[in-house]
Amino acid sequence: MIPTYAANIAIAIRTSLMDRTNFVLNSAGMVLNDIFFLILWYMFFAGFRQVGGWGLHDVARLLGIIMLVVAISGVFFGGYRDMAATILRGEIDALLTQPKSILPRLLARESIATAWGDGVMGIWMLITFAGLSWTDTPAVLLTLVCGTTIYVASAIAYASMAFWFTGARSFARDLTDFMLLFSSYPGSIYSGMTKVIAYSLLPAGFIVLTPVAFLRNPSAGTFTIIATSTLLYVSLAAALFHAGLIRYRRGLVPTG
């Protein structure tokens, strides 16, 4: 399975790089966008030393992680972005006549050019502003693996709604955008209902907030929360997608 996925995503990456000008513009645009965001936070911390216990290092870690999560997801699993539309257009028919699993094939259908820009900025952010040392590398890698897995799994779960509702094309994208938005702000700003949402429907809590806490103070308890939530979201996404696929193959048409 892995060699086939690697070959498939290699083709998707080549496709995303075909138009060099577009690739450079997209990536550079994303770098500028990220720099602008960083400047805002830098100015903020010039005036206030902390926001709800979160300092510049914590915010740099949060931004670095989410940028790298978006980068890894976009480059290597970019098919998540248009998965709902792909399902609604019936494009999985061709994949169903082939012998490999459908979900990996859908994820490897596309690689997103702008994600390279996020990757460059994420690495720069973690190295320059996050106050990390090389000994933190294993912990950072762990948070990236788990964060990316939850991010992609959530996007798959949103897209799987396309098996039930035609409106999933837009709301899957909206939910993914909201998940990214929730993952771009310090955890201390969430309370009450927004906190519940950040740890459930839009799992910023497990993608970045708990991982940042883990980097600040590594513990077996926090690690268990991250690992368990990763398993839960993967299981939920796989279950939803397969339930939807069964529905699709039974000819149950999504409603408007």
């Binding site: 070959a7 083709i11 496709t15 075909m18 028919d93 006549t97 082939q98």
Partner: peptide, 28 residues
């Protein structure tokens, strides 16, 4: 079995057919 849908493609349209064929070798 081999399946062709006249209105759908199993090829990567931005790339030469040779690349899609190479991927199909792995898929099958």
């Amino acid at each position: 079995i081999g399946v062709v849908f006249g209105q759908r493609t199993q090829l990567w349209t931005e790339l030469p057919a040779r690349d899609s064929f190479a991927l199909l070798r792995r898929i099958y």
